[in-house]
Write a protein that binds this DNA or RNA. Structure first.
Lengths: 300, 300
DNA sequence: TGTAAGCTTGAATCAAATTCATGGTTCGGG
DNA sequence: CCCGAACCATGAATTTGATTCAAGCTTACA
């Protein structure tokens, strides 16, 4: 049986935390609902236990030593985590909080436009969006749900397929003339293309799925964010390879059009809903998950 | 005066933490050096305080409820942080630990080759390298020192300039013939170039500093990591724009050569040593900082 | 120089953590 | 089917340790 780490006396630590935060024992005492003397005793106890001086005392003024500063900076987040976790478990508001991590582009172009529907479907839900590109450890970071992009194979998470990503060339209305639209391969060779730096294969995939030769990308405009790509296409800078469902909104609003008919290229990857394998989602998270699934269905 | 967050009874929390970790009260009790009964009372107290059931009890077996699992996952890191911070402050070993964050390429090509010198200069130092590209919050993440790349203007940190980044075209020995080397502009137009996706301006900067027209990058090989760029150049795939001091090792080993003489292009950016503004570095961190500065001097 | 503000100290008190002794539940083996 | 082993629960007793109280120091500043 592994030994448990040695922890300092925790109530002494709490007293030190308050004292360091306020910079004076008196205020710390008031905040904790005890007396100055209590703080003084507890801080002293912690210092003895650590054999390290945490405060410089010079009469009525105290000041953190540099060890004290460092220690405070290191333990402060821990208290924050405990408080947050406790509040989430204990308060009714916390129980309605659902944190969802998803790619920024999907948040902007797919989720946010639908978000007022969520309030109707699950009243009272308090959704927290975490848009980050890296694959975070859901359980460690306390995230309830994730929408991830890829093949659906990740360790330690349960996944459900939400929707495939479908590729479709898009451009500003009128950028591709009606006659040109009948010759996709020729048009792509003639016009400037726009591509995503991180997904350089998208054009080739679309071309392959539609029986065209892969277009030359030498002079293509490159961006590393979907925002910029769609904005550039809408400005008439070229033809972009857009991904459904992200471009749906702009196609409906006709700020972009899909000039070429025909089957859409399925990029092979999909968006998946994921949550930590060994954690049953909360009631609130379950509702959000179901709502996300119905929204995804509608787009197919 | 802001109110302090309401925290659960901390010793009850510690008991729960141990119980959840071992999955049985008996082992938790042994680990904490108290009796089963103590754990039982404390866990019950926490459950009452939270008004949430944390364990399912069915006779001699207990099991975390899903609330309990979630709560444990959320508080466990906090205990880890407290333990780590305490150990670093309290143990002699911890006081010699210095964590340094720096770009991965600088770690690989500049720091690591010099690392045995550090042991001689500062015996007993226990250096922890954190290679990450994002600009982390040093104080929050408990990092003592950082080497950052850029203009030297960052909030909340004290910086000292370490060394400028100098650009220099590099290639496999023999890839550029002696006669070609006398006509850099022509050679760059004729040969394939290698560039870093994230720093597309490097070639233009070098060219400007040396009075050449900016080379065309349309057909250039693009990589998003310095590793790959230098490996590609060493393979004879093209001419790369390397950055001193990263390429120094490979130039010395003659796995790469700098075919063009003349002034090197200073990229304008430099590497800076940084630490949290309001935290005095530890003695150990101070030693490492001084050693890094002397190493940087030598390269100029 | 005196006084107010604020921390310290040590003894006394009180609350909380822990133990002890006992009882109850489940599970597996004979 | 029953018994014993393994484990957790419970409540009263006890011990630990957190907190207060009252008095004393130290420093800043008027």
């Amino acid at each position: 049986m592994p030994d448990l780490p040695v922890l300092p006396p925790l109530s002494a630590l709490r007293a030190f935390h308050a004292a360091a935060r306020f910079g004076r024992f008196r205020d710390a005492a008031t905040a904790l609902g005890i007396t100055e003397s209590g703080i003084s005793h507890q801080v002293r106890k912690l210092e003895d236990w650590l054999s390290v001086r945490l405060f410089e005392r010079s009469g009525p003024r105290i000041k953190l030593t540099s060890d004290g500063e460092r220690y405070y900076a290191a333990i402060d987040p821990a208290f924050g985590e405990i408080r947050a976790a406790t509040e989430a478990l204990r308060t009714p508001a916390g129980r309605n909080r659902v944190s969802l991590t998803l790619p920024a582009s999907l948040a902007t172009y797919w989720l946010i436009p639908r978000l007022d529907g969520l309030e109707k479907a699950c009243p009272g839900i308090d959704l927290e969006l975490v848009t980050t590109s890296r694959l975070i450890d859901l359980k460690r970071e306390g995230v309830d749900l994730a929408i991830r992009y890829g093949g659906g194979q990740w360790p330690d998470v349960t996944v459900r397929r939400l929707m495939p990503e479908q590729l479709v060339p898009v451009a500003r209305p009128g950028f591709v003339a009606a006659v040109e639209a009948r010759d996709p391969a020729g048009t792509l060779a003639a016009k400037r293309l726009i591509m995503h730096t991180h997904y350089p294969q998208q054009w080739a995939e679309w071309a392959a799925a539609n029986g065209h030769p892969p277009p030359a990308l030498a002079g293509a405009l490159r961006f590393s964010s979907t925002d910029q790509i769609l904005a550039a296409a809408a400005q008439g800078l070229g033809i972009a390879i857009g991904a459904r469902p992200m471009v749906d909104q702009m196609l409906e609003a006709r700020s972009l059009v899909a000039p070429f008919d025909g089957p859409r290229g399925d990029s092979g990857a999909s968006y998946f809903l994921a949550w930590p394998k060994d954690l049953k989602p909360t009631v609130a998270a379950g509702k959000v998950a179901r709502w996300l699934e119905t929204q995804a269905m509608r787009d197919l």
